[in-house]
Design a protein around this nucleic acid. Structure first.
Lengths: 203, 203, 203, 203
DNA sequence: GATGAATGAGTCTTCATTCAT
DNA sequence: AATGAATGAAGACTCATTCAT
């Protein structure tokens, strides 16, 4: 079979996945029925089931692609040269997440919350998420090492712990924005700055 | 059976709620069936439904009481004299949450994640949680004001923003611990310290 | 036990029955729950069950007493002297049913409809109703015989058939008033008169 | 399965409706469970629910189609030429109802009684029935007008009242036959004749 | 006797998934 | 390969009735 067929297949998969994500985001994972997804995708039940084994696989795929989107969004920030100081980078990460959600009409924060909840009873999903966040934390740890080398961290600072703390801030921002509201990346960044976290890299 | 005493009634309610929380924690909100809760409570379906209108009320009650527990746990920390410096207080808050979960065999973190997810399609629940976290954030802002007066924050620091940042750290710790693992209150505290947040209150 | 106790018992029974009838009339037989009746009666579940075996007995009793009320209302009309001519008597019967319903706030027509429906799956109830209506039809047949003797019916008229026809008119009025509306005893009477039924007894 | 034809769909609907009507007739509206209907229809629960929203819709459909059947049965009688005199027409109407019930093994009288009862707490159903009977009564009034023109009614007779009276006779016959028994269309007709209602149109 | 909390079988309904066409 | 009608196992909830106190 020529390449076109594969492309079509991939396009179909994406079409279904987009429908699923839209439904999940709007109604949550459990309140979304397969029929919702089938209708939203514009395909037939059989077609959907030929691309995805079942609802669980669709959930996993929705979360996985969301994480993929997130990775594509965030990795460049970590590799930016010159490396921004901690608070600045953290703010950019949060802003990037926030902006994407607003721009694409596809709220990564909501999906994240749904995924975390689901992960507690779906080991497969949990493993996927754990892997993603662990990898991201490793990346952050690498970044922290560079900060340390640049003298932006205390001398005794552990890059791993810094990564853990920053990941907490980022994930916490997602929760706080989704549940409590009235908070933006700048607020968090300002708050960290007020606490004494290096803003400029100078001390 | 004659009229049951108020105490007994409350005890029965708690018995059912404990069963529900145990089930929710183990299987998640949606995967838990009323029959699970009924069996775990040791009562009959009718009895359970005479204490709680339905599953939604049970979910709301489970989350609400968890938040109540959390409040009882955390408020004393915010009123402690002398007031610990930011990182120390944050660490204590996280440790308290962590220890309680280990001690009582009742993981507040898991329930929190479930609640956040559910809140996205249950406005009643969302309002309850938003109210709780907003109140807690206000308390933190008050604390931040005291820190500021004591010179533990930068001069230009906004207590509100500091509160937002610290709440993010705390909530983020909950997520990170539940999903990624390999992280404890001390790690986060050390990471914040490494970032330059005042540990001792001295600068 | 002295007589008072029996009286009290009877009063309690009536209290429960009144509550049941009010509920049945308002919500129908099946939509009325025992709890509705219990609450309306102001007694406890146990008390209600000590006076009536169960819901079926309550339904039977409600219908039976309604029929008793009907009998008490209608029998005097059939024994009136001088005996009114057919249409006049029929109109009086319909008016009596109508007026009672309005006066007492207790609609015999509604209860009748409910009872007929229920009778189709409750042989006990069916037998009770059949017995009542059959007896009433017999009474009407006796009346028809007197009309015949007085020359108010055609010579070849069968009193039994006349009774059947008049019972149909009366029962039909109940249905028509309850379901179609815009009809009163006078309309029916006028219609019969228009059809040529002797109004005055003169021809 | 590919798209089913409209005919097949209609046939399936009828299959379910027939099953429902059979159950309703045998056990009454409320004592009939969805499982009864599902089993009787030979389909699955899901299939039944894909054709009818729920039990209420099934009840409404059963009553509505019964009324439709009734209309199809009775309208020709009202349009017959030459127009039979009042008692004759009434007898034919009652006979038609009676015969259909015997012939088809589907008792319109029983369904009618069930419907009247249900109508008292189901406004939708009530409106449907009221509309049907009111239309039928109008038709009868038109017929009465023709009788009047032909001199078969008293000069002062109101066609509307005559229609009300005849509808009462017909509905009353249904009740009397279902509840009391020992009565047929001929008995009622004879009784009306005995009361002086024009049989032949001559006086 | 009276109470009313508790029971649990029974109801309606949903929805992930399959498979005949 | 695609379709979408059909499946049927759950699930949430109700309510007539009982019986320990």
């Amino acid at each position: 079979m020529p390449k076109i067929s594969d492309e079509k297949r991939a396009a179909r998969r994406m079409q279904i996945l987009d429908a699923a994500r839209a439904c999940f985001q709007k109604n949550g994972l459990h309140a979304t029925t397969m029929e919702d997804i089938i209708r939203a995708s514009g395909l037939s039940a059989g077609a959907v089931y030929s691309y995805f084994k079942g609802k669980d696989e669709l959930i996993l795929a929705a979360v996985t692609t969301s994480l993929g989107t997130l990775r594509a969004l965030l990795e460049p920030l970590l590799k930016a040269e010159p490396l921004p100081p901690p608070v600045k980078l953290t703010e950019r990460i949060m802003s990037t997440i926030d902006d994407f959600s607003k721009r694409e009409g596809y709220d990564l924060k909501r999906i994240a919350l749904l995924g975390w909840s689901e992960a507690q009873r779906n080991e497969n999903l949990h493993a996927t998420m754990r892997g993603f966040y662990a990898a991201f934390r490793d990346l952050l740890a690498g970044t922290a090492l560079r900060w340390k080398e640049e003298g932006l961290l205390h001398d005794g600072a552990s890059p791993d712990d810094v990564a853990k703390a920053l990941l907490a801030v980022i994930l916490g921002f997602v929760v706080e924005a989704a549940i409590v509201g009235d908070v933006g990346p700048k607020d968090i960044a300002a708050g960290l700055g007020g606490l004494g976290v290096n803003k400029s890299g100078l001390r």
